[in-house]
Computed example of a mutant assay.
Amino acid sequence: MQKKPMPPAKSILIATGNAHKTEEISAILGTEYSVEDLAGKKFPKVAETGTTFLENATLKAVEISKLTEQWVLSDDSGLEVDALHGEPGVYSSRYAGEEGNDSANNAKLLDELSKLPADTSRTARFRCVIVIAKNGERLAHFSGAVEGKIIQQRHGEGGFGYDPLFMPDGFNQTFAQLTAEQKNTLSHRSRALELAQPWIAENV
C-alpha cells in the first residue's frame, strides 16, 4: 500500500476547489500556515448529502482526511433569508440548479423575493461552519454568522456568491463593494475562523 505523503508543519488542506474561498481562508489565517486546496489534486468529489452546514462540512473534511496526512479544514456556508424560511441555506451554491453559478443563483434569489409582498422584511445572514479533521476523524468544529439584508439589485464587483446582494448590518455597501480586508474582518467565515484559530495554533 502506497504511503500517504507527509506534509510540512502547519500545512492545512482546504477541502474545496473554490479558489475564492481558499484565498479568503488563507488571508484570514495568515502567513504562518501553508494553505492549499483540492484544485489540481486527485481527490474524489465528496457528495454533500447533509441537511445542515455541520453535516456537509463534516462529510468533506472527514472523507478527504482519510486520503492525506495533512490537517484538513472544511467549511460549509451559505445564505439564510428569513422571508424564504432559511433558503437557500445548504443549497446556496446550487440554488438555481447548477453548482457554483453565482449569476443564476442571485437571479433566482431576487425572483423568489419578488413574489412576496413589497413590505416583506429582507433580513438574512451568512452562516459558516468549519470542521477540522485528521486521519478520518472530526476533531473540532466552529460556527460564525453575520447578519444583514438582501437589497433590491446587485451592487459591486468584488467577492463571490451572493456578496453583491448582501448588505451587512451597520454598512451601506454590499460585501461585493467592501474591500477584501474589510470583508475579512466581519464575514461569517472570518468569525468562524476567529474561533478556530486558538485551537489550530495549539494543535496543528
Rank of each mutant, 00 (worst) to 15 (best):
M1L: 13
M1P: 14
P5L: 07
P5A: 06
P8T: 13
K10S: 08
I14F: 10
T16A: 00
K21A: 02
K21G: 02
T31Y: 03
Y33W: 10
E36P: 02
P44L: 00
P44E: 05
V46D: 13
V46C: 06
E48S: 03
G50R: 12
T52P: 05
L59T: 02
S65P: 10
E80H: 12
V81L: 09
A83G: 12
A83C: 13
H85K: 15
H85E: 15
H85Q: 14
S92N: 08
Y95Q: 12
A96H: 09
G97Q: 11
G100F: 10
N101I: 00
K108E: 08
P117L: 07
A118R: 13
R127D: 07
C128K: 03
I130V: 14
F142K: 06
G148R: 11
G148D: 10
Q152I: 07
R154K: 14
G156V: 06
G158V: 05
G159S: 07
F160C: 02
Y162A: 04
P164M: 10
Q182M: 11
K183D: 14
K183I: 07
N184P: 11
L186H: 12
L193P: 04
Q197Y: 11
P198V: 04
W199T: 09
I200L: 15
A201K: 12
V204P: 00
V204K: 00
